[in-house]
Design a protein around this nucleic acid. Structure first.
Lengths: 336, 336
DNA sequence: CCCCTATGATTAACCGGTTAAGTTGAGCCC
DNA sequence: GGGCTCAACTTAACCGGTTAATCATAGGGG
């Protein structure tokens, strides 16, 4: 493995017959370099195939040109069944690429890796940190903010108002979903809620409760964990509790798919016996049996927005919004 | 944004009453440091909350402790419908975390970003590079290898035998799948193949052709692109060509799901009228209607193996295998 | 008792850039 | 022509580590 000698600034300078400082200025596009010299330097750069050494540059600029995306799950759980993180990565990746920043991916499930993430960020290995969808009241984002590290969360952080975030309008989306069910004449509307240690789970349940109360209907809640399996189990539990239910709002498409399977298994027809509405609008909901009415949340756009906000923070742009909330939208298909 | 002063080696050295060099040796776990001094240094490190500056370290060691994973698709296509990349990331991520290396994610769809990746790797920003599932005969991996940069591909690279890779036994998996169909008495066995600029597409089609020939049956091929939509379209085309076909091997689960939808739409029953076998064993195949018989490939394990092989290369371990091929396995459910 | 060696610490050079401060020289004005 | 300004370049200090070379000290052998 012969890691070939790479040319340094010094080499370029010698070849172009100027000083290191001048080459540096040319490379960084500074003004106040005579056109003739600039050309000579550029030619030397070209001929030698010079590429700046990022480590050396970082050492003095205190910038790494890379940002971390923290996925607060163990590496094993992330991606197992979930289409959320991939979509976030897609949005973030596109935006960072355009800004010529590198994306460093970190999983932070265990307490040990949680530490690792903190040390890594504090050590200045990245210019900023983004947290994707957190559980519970994680103190890490707040800690980093207090240390002066630019941070953005996806999803309003629980219990720490000092951390800027990007989220979607869970509440509003759920309200329009549940109102849709009410308007269709459904009266026994249950819900399969998400985990209650995540904002997405909490807010969607709150939206359900509020709308039901407005309509003078009684709530009927079972909690799931956003997986298809939990959707199946939760649907069975709901049916056991209330065999006469005529609708269910499910807090994620994956669980909704599980619910559809369980309903079919129980001999219920969708939507004639039981109407089903999901939340996410993943591909899968277009192809489920029947196609799923669901609340679309713009996950890729959320990733993009997070990246944009973070880049703004890093560049010290003023008047950065502390929170950005993206709209959700009810997509009506056949299940309700 | 008050990026707080971080303590340096110098500060720790002063506090512990020793030289910088000694602190460096303690931090890097070198032997030949007296226990008493080691303790004093460690205490100082603790008290000051010292974390080494990676840029400074990289500058001298020529190591960055991070490795790149290249996803050779545009940021927009990756993850749109595909569960392959997430699984690779999961495997790679776990293994790298254990080795305390950072994962830098790069999308390399456009020619421009292709360049960017090359420059980035050549600039020594990463200690090694992994390519996930490539299209066509991409020269980049070979280029990097020739420059002395450790590289591993997922999937045998087309047209460049100098690049080490990790792959699965596409051919063997497909053979057992098609033999299973033949053994069940199917005689008009079609296939929906994958893109023919990818090894996964090519090898799976080759396996199909070989097994069919062995059995004295006639092949019937339509090409898809691994998406569900292409599976739907391909299945329709196959049925139009040969309404009497009694089985189809589909080169990916996503396309197989599309095929199931198209078959249902055409009024065919699965498996009684038409048997269907997929390839991948994604979650979705357990829950399709009917559950999908498919060839399981260990994608997460592939990611893990790639990471392990790359780490071996980076550490200059001898006798590194040039190729690792992981086994596939036929998972029989209800569709065939 | 002296010299040699082993052990463990320090000194100082170096990695490859950026940038403040200093130098040079051309152009302008009186 | 001399002094001043200003643009354009060079010099040199610095970022924060690693490590080869060097030095100090204690212990052991003759």
């Amino acid at each position: 493995m012969v890691t070939r000698e790479r040319p340094t600034l010094e080499a370029v300078a010698r070849r172009a017959g100027v000083s290191r400082a001048t080459v540096s200025r040319v490379v960084n596009g500074s003004t106040s370099v005579a056109a003739s010299i600039r050309e000579a330097v550029n030619r030397a750069v070209e001929e030698l195939g010079y590429v700046p050494n990022q480590a050396a540059r970082s050492l003095v600029t205190q910038r790494t040109e890379s940002i971390a995306l923290i996925l607060p799950e163990t590496a094993n759980r992330v991606f197992s069944d979930d289409l959320f993180f991939p979509a976030i990565i897609r949005g973030v990746g596109g935006e960072l690429e355009a800004a010529d920043k590198q994306l460093v991916l970190m999983m932070a499930g265990s307490a040990k890796s949680h530490d690792r993430v903190e040390r890594y960020a504090v050590a200045g290995h990245v210019d900023g940190v983004m947290f994707a969808s957190m559980h519970g009241a994680d103190p890490l984002p707040g800690t980093l903010v207090r240390l002066g590290i630019p941070v953005i969360c996806s999803g309003r952080p629980i219990g720490d108002s000092s951390v800027p975030y990007v989220d979607v309008d869970h509440f509003g989306g759920v309200c329009s979903a549940v109102r849709h069910l009410v308007a269709a004449g459904r009266r026994r509307i249950a819900t399969i809620a998400g985990p209650q240690d995540m904002v997405a789970g909490i807010d969607r349940l709150a939206g359900y409760r509020a709308t039901l109360e407005d309509s003078g209907l009684a709530p009927h809640v079972v909690i799931g964990d956003f997986t298809r399996e939990s959707g199946i189990a939760a649907m069975r539990a709901l049916l056991a509790d209330d065999p006469a239910l005529d609708a269910v709002f499910v807090a994620s498409d994956m669980m909704a798919h599980g619910a559809l399977l369980a309903l079919k298994d129980a001999g219920r027809r969708v939507p004639s016996d039981v109407a089903v509405v999901g939340f996410d609008d993943f591909d899968i909901s277009r192809y489920s049996e029947p196609p799923l009415t669901t609340v679309r949340q713009p996950i890729v756009e959320m990733g993009r927005t997070m990246a944009r906000q973070l880049l703004g923070l890093i560049n010290g742009e003023p008047h950065q919004a502390d929170a950005v909330v993206l709209p959700t939208e009810l997509v009506i298909r056949e299940s309700a």
